[in-house]
């Protein structure tokens, strides 16, 4: 694919593993020039190399999303080497399972810093050139957990925060035709989910109407749609990839 045929330049934060890596691979297949951000250089290099091996175009981009100076420098470097990021995917995040009596100041600050502050730093920097160019799209990975779940007070606060931020910025950027949306996964087959014991896993599965877990590729498909022209007038929305769990989660009250 020649550069003029590419749909654009994508930057995926936390792209070195799990859902982020699946998003990188999918956008690579879609033809994007993909910048794989991760804190861990080896992971970013491996995912980028995998995309190149499949005939795509990709590069590692190491930076800590909680450091706004490092984020700005990462965007500067991408613009110098390739051009404006036309599709930003805010995927970097950290889980935070803790009953409220265990939600220390440190726990709260860590979750909010990565899952909310990091999204602001990347989005703010990405929007500056998008606003001038009157094109571009941002997708932030939130979670169905923002609706509420046991042990998720800090995590839900951060994941609700990105939804509020996305809606406000979707309004603010609408006259420029820059779109911002959210993907909210439910139970996705990741190492974290699979680390639960069988009984816990089965109970979690009971909460999903479709009765199965999703895959990282399911999330990547939703991101691929939202950054594409197929979703050209979709903005400020939360697209759930959760097998119907956002409608009603069938909580197991004996939990």
């Amino acid at each position: 694919m020649t550069d003029s045929m590419r749909p654009g330049i994508a930057l995926v934060t936390g792209g070195g593993q799990g859902i982020g890596a699946a998003i990188c691979r999918r956008l690579g297949q879609d033809g994007f020039d993909v910048f794989v951000n991760d804190l861990d250089k080896d992971r970013a290099v491996a995912v980028a190399q995998g995309i190149v091996d499949q005939g795509g175009s990709a590069h590692p981009a190491v930076a800590d999303v909680t450091d706004s100076t490092a984020v700005d420098a990462m965007f500067d470097a991408i613009e110098d080497s390739a051009g404006m990021v036309t599709a930003l995917v805010n995927n970097a995040g950290v889980g935070g399972n803790a009953a409220v009596r265990h939600v220390t100041d440190d726990h709260w600050d860590r979750v909010l810093s990565i899952d909310l502050d990091g999204v602001l730093y990347c989005t703010r920097r990405a929007l500056a050139p998008m606003r001038e160019a009157r094109t571009g799209s941002v997708v932030t990975v939130s979670s169905r957990a923002w609706l509420g779940w046991w042990g998720q007070s800090a995590y839900a606060a951060a994941k609700a925060g990105v939804i509020g931020m996305t809606r406000a910025l979707a309004v603010e950027m609408s006259s420029r035709d820059v779109r911002l949306n959210v993907v909210a996964p439910g139970l996705i087959e990741t190492p974290l989910l699979l680390s639960h014991d069988q009984a816990t896993f089965e109970r979690l599965l009971q909460s999903v109407p479709l009765g199965r877990v999703g895959s990282p590729d399911d999330v990547a498909g939703a991101v691929s749609f939202l950054v594409s022209e197929a979703a050209g007038v979709i903005t400020g929305q939360v697209l759930y990839v959760c097998g119907g769990k956002s409608v009603y989660a069938y909580p197991d009250w004996s939990n």
Binding site: P209, G214, D218, G221, Y240, V241, G243, G244, S246
Partner: peptide
Amino acid sequence: ANSYISGQ
């Protein structure tokens, strides 16, 4: 391919 989306 997008079969994990329902109720949206």
